[in-house]
């Protein structure tokens, strides 16, 4: 564990040093590729004037709402769909048709429907998470081992009890993986959405910095986006440590 941690830290350090060295040595102009030290200065500047905090909270607020709305609707619906073979056969083509439409293509419609502000962004995040979550959840239900379903039938599990005690726990490890992927996508989408649709958030921060030719701020924004993405992923990964999903990592 210690070896791993030191390894990661020294790799980051090495990259930073190489970045600084290469950009200084070849005299790369700051507006083409800013140096780590200027990025650090920009970070400090945005930290002290509250820009960073305000915009991160704005982005996180939208992602959280959109993502949780999607989780709250897509997972129950996906669990249900995984058991309803005829309904799935009818709905699946529609879902597969809507899924590949990029959430960004919905931006004009979202603005028409929800006006300006947080609502269209939340709607876009919802869209970006909803369809993949339904597809993942449904397929994780279909992957449940037949033996578990037979045992459940044998012991008379039915209705809500069947879902809560067998279907959901059996599908949960796959669902957690789906949550990780989906939250990552949501975070990708919010930045893009904020570049077009709103006047706050980390995406807006980057576009705004570019417009004033502050490339150091652009890169600082990218660093923050990466860091928050890492934290979000680690939060979801905490779920994988629950004792009732540990089995999936031991054997299938």
């Amino acid at each position: 564990m210690a070896v791993k941690r030191y390894g990661v830290l020294s790799l980051i350090l090495l990259l930073l040093v190489a970045w600084q060295a290469v950009t200084s040595f070849f005299r790369v102009p700051e507006f083409v590729f800013p140096r780590p030290l200027s990025v650090a200065r920009a970070l400090l500047e945005m930290l002290s004037n509250g820009e960073l905090y305000r915009n991160s909270i704005a982005s996180l607020f939208r992602v959280t709402w959109g993502f949780y709305l999607a989780v709250a609707t897509a997972i129950p619906f996906g669990l249900f769909l995984g058991r309803q073979h005829q309904l799935r056969a009818i709905l699946n083509p529609l879902i597969q048709f809507l899924r590949p439409i990029s959430p960004l293509a919905w931006i004009p419609m979202a603005l028409m429907w929800f006006g300006i502000g947080d609502k269209p962004a939340i709607f876009l995040i919802f869209l970006s998470s909803f369809f993949p979550l339904i597809v993942f959840t449904t397929s994780s239900v279909l992957n449940i081992r037949t033996t578990y379903l037979r045992v459940a039938e044998n012991f008379g599990f039915k209705g809500l009890r069947l879902y809560m005690r067998v279907i959901l726990p059996a599908a949960l490890p796959d669902i957690i993986t789906a949550l990780r992927i989906t939250l990552g996508t949501a975070w990708l989408v919010i930045v893009a959405a904020e570049m077009i649709a709103v006047k706050s958030g980390l995406g807006y921060l980057i576009i705004d910095a570019r417009n004033s030719l502050r490339m150091d701020m652009v890169v600082a924004g990218m660093v923050v986006i990466g860091a928050i993405g890492l934290v979000l992923d680690n939060i979801i990964r905490l779920l994988e440590r629950m004792p009732s999903v540990e089995w999936s990592r031991v054997r299938r």
């Binding site: 578990y148 037979r150 045992v151 044998n154 067998v166 726990p169 059996a170 009732s244 089995w247």
Partner: peptide
């Protein structure tokens, strides 16, 4: 006509629920 609660099966594969 279907599995009954008075007739319990132990299957070839592991049938314990791993989440319990």
């Amino acid at each position: 006509t279907g599995p009954g609660s008075k007739h319990v099966c132990v299957f070839q594969e592991d049938g314990l629920f791993p989440w319990f």
